[in-house]
Design a protein around this nucleic acid. Structure first.
Length: 722
DNA sequence: GAGCACTGC
């Protein structure tokens, strides 16, 4: 393969690497769709928004689209007449930080003309706020009260190319809303790769026009064109030279470490970012680099190597440390998971600001990532290491070009890159459990789920499974319509349907306090330790005069509050406490009174405990499993043997029955081997076993009692079947 | 003995 070099740029061999060089494919400029070249960019955008119901904006990193576009719209009068401009983000921190920056640029106080809304928090003032930044999930929730989004004149969906579940649902709904509200303008910002597909999706004009066609302005009082406009904004990115392996590697971790060392030896300053798939790999890479670095130092290399790991599970303080610039004479090597792929990395646990990785000049890409897969036949999820998409690889490469021209080393051959990596990542919509999404759509009055227009239709099996799950939980009736009261109540609760169902059951069984705690633990235990949420609880407690009564009523531990008064860095312990108080408010709104089964009872009161367990089982009965006589066969010396085998109860045959389940090692029930269990989550690991997590031991009779529509006693033996 | 790509309401 011919090496291609630009003057002044180094080839891979300059780093002592046997990589094939190739000119920066990732830095190739996107196609320009702007037609009216005589108009300034601002005017051009405003023209398109005026003339088209939908405008797709291809904005490169650094184009300022997120912060600038809403301000242009504000200045142009789109926030007049009491209406607002919404700008949605896939992540909470992004919504907060972008709002803060725009408020600063506009010289107003956050929460006044410019505000934001995320879970737990609404920093906006009705009647005053004109630009509202929020997560796409928040806007979806808002649609339950305001299905046509009457409060907004424009909705801008940012980072649509990430194709998160919430973004895809929102785009489908926005298309629907546009039919009823021709005046609504939708702006979608996306990377090049997804832009045309999104534009085609929103095209409801019956005339086939080339993508990017520019319409004339509508006459006064007339609706805009229904064929979308497409426009690109150029960013400030440096070129990135891409290198491929000449022969493929069987150990990308080792290859990554070798590549990093080779770059380091070359002595060109600039930090290195390595993309790996998980925590283990990141830690292993750091260890190897550390050893290698010490060896190099002994050989008197003047640059010191400073390897650090970066993944979401890392304590907040460690995460923040990664962002500190390396001292002079030190080269940082960051071994990171996918967390480093998105443009902005958040350190929410510490501060409400986002941080970007600065100083990266070299990217080493394993070209793999862990991907969630959902199997609708078993209803179980698995996490598999899979090759990333080309779109994803380009995004990763782009991280090398922020400060100056950079290099990206892909740990695969160019042939493999071209032939084995898919063009784009399968949208989350097509590899997730959709029970929650279907419930949300049903509560928005979309009864015919199967004919909903999706940007990427999910597998039919997944839809059927979602309907079955919701029916089993009592959220849908026999005609798949929202059932009262469970369906409407479950839709109100911002939780997975099984968790919502157990909360509702706890109201009837008199143990909301205990179930609230369990749900908060399951859902928020490892979630972000958001300082602001913490402050909300703190403020409410202060306002109550630091009342112990308030703390008890809100399921906040009074002693923790007192301790927190002294110890600020305990904030990480807070989310679950916060979540319980927040869920309690939701229950109150549904008219469910607080109750407790264990209050006053001894901690070992079996009867009281059984009440709580039954309430939990009311949400989990779909995932019931029975102990079998089999013991896991010892397949190899390394493999753990002797683990008990469980089978799903819900299906007598087929794939679900074939699923081999075992209790996860971490479970306290691992050695107990209860006959009957329910579980909240099971994940397939690389040995093919599904490991049950968050397990509850149940009595067999509970299944027929709680879910007679799903389980009945088999006449011959005790085996349950649907 | 031992675990979790990344988000979100």
């Amino acid at each position: 393969m011919a090496a291609f070099k630009r003057p002044g740029e180094l080839s891979a061999s300059a780093f002592g690497l046997s990589f094939a060089d190739r000119d920066a494919g990732s830095a190739a400029p996107p196609p320009i769709y702007n037609k009216n070249e005589r108009l300034a960019l601002t005017e051009q955008l405003l023209y398109l928004v005026e003339a088209h119901a939908t405008t797709v904006v291809v904005g490169e990193t650094g184009s300022g689209k997120t912060t600038q576009l809403p301000q242009y719209l504000h200045e142009a009068g789109w926030t007049g007449g009491g209406r607002m401009v919404a700008c949605t983000q896939p992540r909470r921190v992004a919504a907060m930080t972008v709002a803060a920056r725009v408020a600063e640029e506009m010289g107003c106080r956050l929460g006044q003309e410019v505000g934001y809304a995320i879970r737990f928090e609404d920093v906006s003032t009705p009647g005053v706020t004109r630009l509202r930044f929020c997560t796409d999930g928040v806007l979806l929730r808002e649609m339950m009260d305001d299905p046509l989004l009457q409060k907004y004149s424009v909705v801008m969906v940012d980072e649509a190319h990430e194709r998160s579940l919430a973004t895809d649902v929102l785009l489908g709904l926005l298309k629907k809303v546009q039919r009823r509200r021709p005046d609504l303008r939708v702006i979608i910002s996306s990377a090049t790769i997804e832009a045309e597909a999104i534009a085609r999706f929103f095209d409801t004009s019956n005339v086939r026009r080339p993508v990017g066609h520019v319409e004339a302005l509508p006459a006064e009082g007339q609706p805009p064109s229904r064929s979308p406009a497409l426009m690109s904004l150029e960013g400030r990115m440096h070129s990135v030279q891409v290198h491929y392996l000449e022969t493929s590697t069987s150990n990308y971790l080792q290859s990554a470490v070798e590549a990093a060392i080779a770059i380091h030896k070359d002595d060109q300053p600039g930090d290195i970012l390595i993309f790996l798939t998980g925590q283990d790999e990141c830690e292993a890479a750091v260890k190897l680099l550390d050893e290698e670095g010490r060896r190099l130092q002994r050989s008197r290399l003047k640059w010191r190597l400073q390897p650090v790991a970066l993944y979401a599970g890392l304590p907040a303080t460690h995460q923040l440390a990664v962002f500190e610039p390396a001292p002079r004479g030190v080269r940082k090597v960051i071994a990171a998971t996918n967390i480093a792929e998105t443009s902005v990395i958040a350190a929410t646990n510490i501060a409400e600001t986002s941080v970007t990785l600065e100083g990266i000049v070299y990217v080493i890409d394993s070209c793999f990532a862990k991907q969630r897969c959902y199997n609708p036949l078993t209803g179980l999820e698995s996490l598999l290491i899979a090759p990333i998409s080309k779109a994803s690889a380009q995004q990763r490469a782009g991280r090398a070009g922020r400060v100056r021209p950079g290099h990206c080393f892909r740990l695969c051959t160019e042939d493999d890159y071209e032939s084995k990596l898919p063009a784009s990542t399968v949208p989350e919509m097509q590899r997730s459990d959709l029970a929650s999404t279907v419930l949300q759509l049903k509560s928005l009055g979309i009864d015919n789920i199967m004919s909903f227009e999706w940007l990427a239709p999910p597998p039919a099996e997944t839809m059927v499974r979602a309907l079955e799950t919701l029916h089993a939980l009592g959220a849908l009736d026999g005609d798949a319509r929202l059932a009262r009261p469970y369906g409407t109540q479950m839709a109100e609760l911002p939780l997975d349907p099984p968790l919502a169902r157990m909360l509702l059951a706890s109201g009837q069984m008199g143990c909301t306090a205990e179930v609230l705690t369990v749900v908060a633990m399951l859902r928020f235990a490892v979630a972000e330790g958001d300082l602001i949420s913490y402050l909300n609880v703190w403020k409410a407690w202060e306002e109550s005069g630091r009342s112990k009564k308030w703390a008890i009523a809100n399921y906040v531990m009074h002693r923790s509050l007192l301790r927190a008064a002294d110890i600020r860095n305990q904030a990480r312990l807070w989310p679950r406490v916060c979540a319980a108080a927040w869920l309690q408010a939701h229950l109150r709104r549904l008219g469910i009174k607080p109750s407790s089964a264990l209050d006053g009872a001894s901690a070992f009161d079996q009867e009281a405990l059984a009440t709580v367990r039954k309430a939990l089982a009311a949400g989990l009965f779909i995932n019931a499993a029975k102990l079998t006589d089999e013991l896991q066969v010892k397949l190899s010396d390394q493999e753990d043997s002797g683990a008990s085998v469980y089978r799903l109860v819900r299906s007598a045959g087929g794939e679900a029955a074939a699923a081999k389940l075992r209790i996860h090692h971490s479970s306290v029930l691992f050695r107990c081997r209860p006959q009957w269990v329910c579980f909240y989550a099971a994940e397939q690991n690389d040995t093919g076993w599904y490991e049950m997590r968050d397990i509850l031991a149940i009595e067999s009779g509970w299944l027929t009692e709680l879910a007679p529509h799903m389980y009945r006693l088999a006449p011959v033996n005790t085996q349950m079947r649907r």
